[in-house]
Structures are given as C-alpha cells and as structure tokens.
Design a protein around this nucleic acid. Structure first.
Length: 727
RNA sequence: GCGCGCAUAGCUCAGCUGGUUAGAGCGUUCGCAUGACAUGCGAAAGGCCCCAGGUUCAAAUCCUGGUGCGCGUACCA
C-alpha cells in the first residue's frame, strides 16, 4: 500500500498499525466502569435492560487477599466474565458480585512466613498485635488484587464488593452458628482432631494431605502377643491389646482378661479387648491401641469405655508418661525406643518395605499428630442428606456428571467437621467455654456468665472459625440475606463457577448452609473448571519456578490473548496446560481481527445507507453467517466456551478473512453499483456480528474496534451492552 | 484398599447419545512481499484413535478384562 492511497481512505488512524493491547485496555475498562453498566440497576435505569428481564447472577469466588493473582484466578475470572458478558448482551438482568477473602489459615501462614523471614514469630506476639498486622497486610493485598481483576476485564459490579470480614458477613455467620446450636447441629466436645505441631492448630480432614512413604514397621513381643506398629513412640500408654472376636489364634483369651507383661519401661498390666475393628489379616492380628493419638483407637476406646492418656504434647514431644524419654522429639525417641526394646529382647522383627501414606499438614507438610482436644464440631450428616436430596431432585446440577458423582460420594461418606482453629486470623467464635467441664455455649450478646451445665466459671472461647465455615455462607452474605432486594432478585444465583479442587471445601458447604438457612440451594448449577498447569502438565509452583503470572502474560500478549488461551481447547472440568505459544497465537488473532476491521472500514467508506443485498449475498447470510451464529450460540448456551471460541476463531479467520474478503475484492471493484453496495453491506454485517460474537471472549479488542465503527453500523454506543446477534 | 477420571498427529487437546476420506492450535517441511494483515498468504507431511476380547450391517465412540498415568479418599496395625 502506498502512502498516497492511505490518505485517500477514511480508515481511523488507530488502525494504521498493529493492535497494541496496552494502548487500549486501561481506557476501555475505565469507560465501561464509568458507564455504570456493570451494575444491573443502572442498565435498567438507562434503558439497556428491561426491568422484568430474566436474571443471571454469579457470586465470584473471592480470591485470597494474600498475594497476587495466579493463572487459576485468571481462568475463573475469564470463564465467569464470558458468562456474564454473554448474559448481559442477551438482555438479561446480569449481576456479578465480586469479593475478597481474608482466607484465615492460608493468609496467616503467608504472613507467618513473612515474619519468619524477618526473624520474628507469631508466638512472641499478642493476638491483638498479630491480628492488626495481618489486617493491614490483607487490606493492602486486597486492593492490589482487585486491581488485577479489573485488568483481566472483569465486568463485575464493584458497588456490591464485599470482604469476608465485613460486619454483614460476621452477622450472618454468628446467627447461623446460634441457630445450629439450637438445632443441635454443632457441639463442643473432646474428640480426635488433626493437629499440626508447627502451626499449633487443629485442621479439618480436608486440610490434610496424604504423603506416600516407606517406613519401618516393627513387630514387638507384648506378653503372649506379637503386635505391629509403625509408631513405637506412642506405645507408652498402651495397656489394651485388641483382637478380633472370631480370631481363633486368640480364642484362649477372653474379653477383659488382664495380663501382666514386660514393656518399654517395666512391667505393666494389659487388658484384652475383643473388637471387630481389629483386622485378623493385618500383621499378627493383635494390636495395642493409643486412643489419644489415633482416630480408629479412639473409636475402639469409646466403644469399650477405656482410658485415654496423652503421650505426645502439642509441640510433638513426649510427655512424662514416657519416663526416660520425656521431652524427646518423637522421631528421635522412635529409634531409641526400638533400641531399648531390642535390648530387652522384645523386638521380633522389622519390615522395612512397609508402604503407607501419612496425613500431613497441607501447608507445611509436617506430619499431623492426631490429638484429643475440646473443639467445636458440626454434625454434618443431616446437612449432607439435604444436600444429596437437592442434587437428586436436580435443584442443583453439575456441568459434568463425573463431578456430580464425586460430589455425592463425598457427601455420602461425610464425617463431622471440626470448625475451630487455634489461630487469630479469622472470625472469633462467639462462645463461652466452661473452665471446669469444657462445655461450650454460643453467646452472641456476651451475656453468659456461668456454665449452663455445671455452673462452673466460663471464659471466652479463644478460637476462630475455620474459614470455610464462613465462606460456606458467602452466597447469603453477598446477596445480603435475608431481607434485601438482591436476595429476592438474585438468590439462588444462576451458576457457581469455581475450581474443582474446592468442591468439598466450598461448594458442598455452600449447598449445605444455603439449604439450612433458606431452604433453597444457593445456585442452580455448578460449573467446575480444572487446574491450570504449566506447558508440560506440571503443577505450577514457586519452588519449581514454572509459575506463569497472568500480569506478565498480559503485558506481553494482551489480556484478550490470555483469555482466549485459557478458554480455547479447555473443556470444562479438565485440567489444562498453559502454553505461551498458544497465547501468542491468540495475540495474532486479535491483530487479525484488527486488520479485518481496517479492510472493511476502508472498503465500506462510501457505503450507501439502506443498501439492498443481492440474492447471492442474502443466500450467503442465510447459509453461512446465520448458521455459524446459531451454532456458536448453541455452544454458549451449553457452557461449552471452549468449542464456541474455537468456532468463532475459525469462522472469523478461515471464512470471513480468508474466503469472504478474498472473494469480495473483485466485487468491490465492480462497476455494478448495486453489486458493490450489496457486498459492502454484507462485509459490514459480518464485521459487526463477528465483533459481537467475540466480545465475551476478547472484550478489549472488540470494544476498541466498536468504538471506531461508524454510528450507522452500531445499535449501541458501547459493545458491552449491545444485543447478542440473533437470527 | 475404595472412588473418580484420563490414554486420539512431534506437543497440548477436541470429537465419543455408534454411520461418509478422524479434527484444531502450536510445531515441522516447501513455496510466496498476492493493495487489510509477514502478528501475513498458499500448500504439504504426519494417526494399528493404549492392548485384548465382545455387541453390531457398522466402534475412536457402547460393554468386559488388562496395562499405564493423574486426582480424590481411607489406613500409621
């Protein structure tokens, strides 16, 4: 193209160089935000949306306000923004409520690591000091992170932003807690909990992870029995030996029989217990139990009303019951105990090939020490049953059936949920604890002064809630349950879109709490996306150095390219490998669209108004444009954004650009003005439709183009609220 | 151990309510400055659709078994 020819066209100068995302994204987001159209109330006010239009709502999973956004965040923002932009263009009353999560334990750990680096420790601070510092840290991160969500193009309603420590949230959580006490769905009791000796707090089952390991498995002579164990250090308190009632090897022993025997620190009296929990096929079929430090043993002890004795302290060191081993770290003690038992001739054999998996703290990977501790628990069975009922009744559906099966399996096998945490960063448990009998009483008004059970002294519960106890009520908080208009209009929300890794942590709890408080499910469908992995399919982690930061991708390739890269070829529920080459391919696609626009605007500069289409061009629209629009819409309606985006990509590139534009060149040069005008109108139609279809996926480049289109081509000033193409 | 899932082109993955020559992106090879675009255009190569059985006129697609991998969950006797 010569420079003279450039000057004779009316191509807006913006198109005379390649699409440069950084020149447009910030100004376009500002324009959207200032338009007010993220807020459905304003859309109605300005006549964009009908007041009685169908609603579409999503509650955003509030990102943890303790760092910057990772690729997983970028994925969920993208998927939800696609849903939201599509719904808005369809004319629905569309609401997306953003939030930010204080993220309890997670954030406290991030902050503790920071303290460690500074040579400080939370154990040298008062709770108030620590809380204040973490609050400051979290609020700073929150603003930073919300800025990054804006940069991803999220068209959420910022006027409804909610933080998980907002008084409104706490109020709902407290009322739920109180109501659950009345309904006997929470209780405080001494039960086995997952104790992390490093973090000095109990954890829910979900907050532990199994680590596969090979450990020596020891067989010891225990009076007339041979018992097996991988944990000799817990055996000081063992004075019960359990065998299966039907195990003929032990038929001579009776339940309750007492036996004198030589043990680690001298002679002891052991009692024989017959219980079906003992597996005859495992080892010798005889086992000793440590009720204070094992869930299974705890249950056996409970059944037979046996004694409990703590052997290991909260820091993971042996207590005085261990006599000469007192104060030793368990790993150090293990070897010494084995040595001693061997010297006493009580070591039978060692199996060095024993594989088992050990529950570890999901954050620090230190071995969990099961401990008995007075904690608050939720009785989950009745709540789970209601949730299962709602799934069975299709009140809530899952985007892939496989996810529904996983979900049901978990609910069917659910156990009581430990909801108290010994950390400061969280919502305090509003309760009084009896110093004498340990009884717990929910006390919202701070009025309880003595134990309702034993009239003993009470003190304030020092613990905080498991974050998921409050997060589970997030749909209620964000819609301002119970008396708000938002709750009436938008609850249950249309879809819960989140990562499949938190299906149990979060999705299940929201369904249980939603049903419990309101009688209705909190959302009608659950769309679970997979994990974003690196190019080779490995989990991204800082230590591996394979983390792809969204912000870096955005500055290199543009936000639209990142969004497309995250969506195309990523079927719902499956993990995806994020490959920068793929993002680069979509950067090129944005530029392609840019150049298509340049061509079409140039070719249609003298487009007469009201040009009629030739028969050929009418047929083209009917057989190609309409068909593609219909198919893409069908994919959108079934949440197959991976297929919809791929289809648009090929439609725009392979058909519109490669075929239609090429075929149009001779027609545009035609002397037949009717043919020429018809083709001009056809190209304009294709451009407008393409840009609309692409907008949910690539909001920035499409809006940038839209803003340059002549008014005659547009049915709205802002593409974000333009109507979705229909037939 | 139990549950869920995956196995298709060099790589990453679609397709799988069974039906013409199995698709895409990236990559590779060859050729092109073609008046929108070299962030481009045109072409090409590349696949016992994991294995073995079965159902069927017909199987990548459904069933059974096996192998390999991933995830979840239990068990520390």
């Amino acid at each position: 193209m010569s420079s003279e020819q450039q000057n004779t066209t009316n191509i807006p100068p913006i198109f005379l160089k390649p699409y440069e995302p950084s020149e447009h994204e910030a100004r376009l987001y500002k324009m959207w935000e200032e338009s007010g159209f993220f807020n459905p109330d304003i859309c109605i006010e300005k006549g964009i949306t009908k007041a009685d239009a169908e609603t579409f709502s999503i509650v955003m999973p509030p990102p943890n306000a303790n760092g910057s956004l990772h690729a997983g965040h970028a994925l969920f923002v993208t998927v939800q923004d696609i849903m939201i932009r599509y719904a808005r263009m369809q004319g629905k009353r569309t609401l997306w409520i953003p939030g930010a999560d204080h993220a309890g334990f997670e954030t406290q750990i991030v902050y503790e690591k920071k303290l460690e680096k500074e040579g400080r420790s939370r154990f040298q601070m008062t709770s108030e000091e620590l809380y204040a510092e973490i609050m400051q840290f979290t609020l700073a991160n929150k603003d930073f992170m919300l800025g990054q969500i804006r940069e991803l193009g999220a068209s959420c309603d910022w006027s409804r932003l909610l933080f998980t420590l907002d008084p409104r949230v706490i109020d709902i959580v407290y009322k739920t807690f109180k109501q659950m006490e009345e309904d006997k769905l929470v209780y405080r009791g001494a039960r086995i909990v997952n104790w992390c000796p490093k973090h000095q707090t109990s954890l829910s089952n979900l907050e532990t992870k199994s680590v596969e390991r090979k450990d020596p498995f020891y067989y010891f002579q225990y009076g007339p029995f041979v018992i097996g164990t991988a944990r000799p250090e817990t055996k000081f308190g063992d004075k019960y030996v359990v065998v299966h009632p039907d195990d003929t090897r032990y038929a001579e022993f009776t339940h309750g029989q007492q036996i004198e025997l030589e043990w680690i620190n001298g002679p002891i009296t052991a009692t024989v217990i017959k219980d079906e929990a003992s597996d005859p096929d495992m080892g010798s079929g005889a086992m000793t139990i440590t009720p204070w430090h094992s869930g299974v043993d705890f249950e056996i002890a409970k059944r037979h009303n046996l004694d409990y004795e703590q052997v290991i302290d909260w820091k993971g060191k042996l207590l005085p019951i261990a006599e000469e081993f007192t104060g030793m770290n368990i790993m150090e003690a293990r070897a010494k105990i084995v040595e001693k038992l061997e010297a006493k001739g009580l070591l039978v054999k060692i199996d060095s090939e024993y594989m088992h998996s050990v529950p570890c703290c999901f954050k620090c990977e230190r071995e969990i020490e099961p401990q008995i501790r007075d904690q608050w628990f939720v009785t989950t069975k009745p709540l789970a049953e209601k949730a299962l009922g709602a799934v069975a009744d299709k009140k809530v559906t899952f985007v892939t059936e496989a996810q529904e099966r996983v979900f049901k399996h978990w609910l069917e096998n659910i156990e009581d949920w430990n909801i108290s945490r010994q950390i400061v960063w969280g919502i305090p448990i509003p309760a009084k604890i009896c110093t004498k009998c340990g009884h717990g009483m929910v006390d919202l008004e701070d009025t309880i002064t003595e134990c309702t059970k034993c009239a003993g002294q009470v003190e304030k519960d020092p613990d905080t809630f498991d974050t998921w106890f409050s997060s589970g009520q997030w749909p209620l908080a964000t819609t301002n349950y119970p008396d708000s208009q938002d709750f009436a209009d938008y609850y249950p929300t249309s879809v819960m879109e989140t990562g499949k890794d938190i299906i149990f942590f979060w999705v299940s709890r929201m369904i249980m709490f939603g049903l419990y408080r309101t009688g209705e499910v909190p959302f009608k469908s659950v769309y679970l996306h997979g994990m974003v992995l690196d190019k080779q399919g490995k989990k991204m982690s800082k230590s591996k150095g394979n983390v792809i930061a969204p912000s870096e991708i955005q500055s290199k390739y543009g936000t639209d390219a990142l969004r497309m890269g995250l969506i195309v070829n990523n079927a719902p529920g499956t993990d995806m490998n994020l490959d920068p080459d793929k993002i680069n391919a979509n950067k090129k696609f944005a530029n392609k669209l840019w150049n298509i626009t340049r061509f079409v605007l140039d070719a249609t500069a003298d487009l007469p108004s009201g040009a009629t289409l030739t028969e050929e061009d009418q047929a083209n629209i009917a057989t190609i444009l309409t068909v593609n629009t219909t198919e893409i819409t069908k994919y959108m309606n079934t949440d197959r954004f991976d297929l919809a985006s791929e289809k648009i990509y090929h439609f725009v590139w392979d058909y519109f650009a490669s075929e239609l534009i090429e075929a149009s060149k001779p027609l545009l040069a035609s002397n037949d003005t009717a043919v020429r005008a018809s083709r001009q109108a056809l190209l304009a139609e294709y451009l407008v439709t393409s840009v609309k279809l692409l907008h949910p996926f690539m909001p920035f480049v499409t809006e940038a183009i839209w803003q340059e289109l002549p008014k005659t081509m547009k049915d709205q000033d802002i593409l974000m609220v333009a109507p979705w193409p229909t037939n």
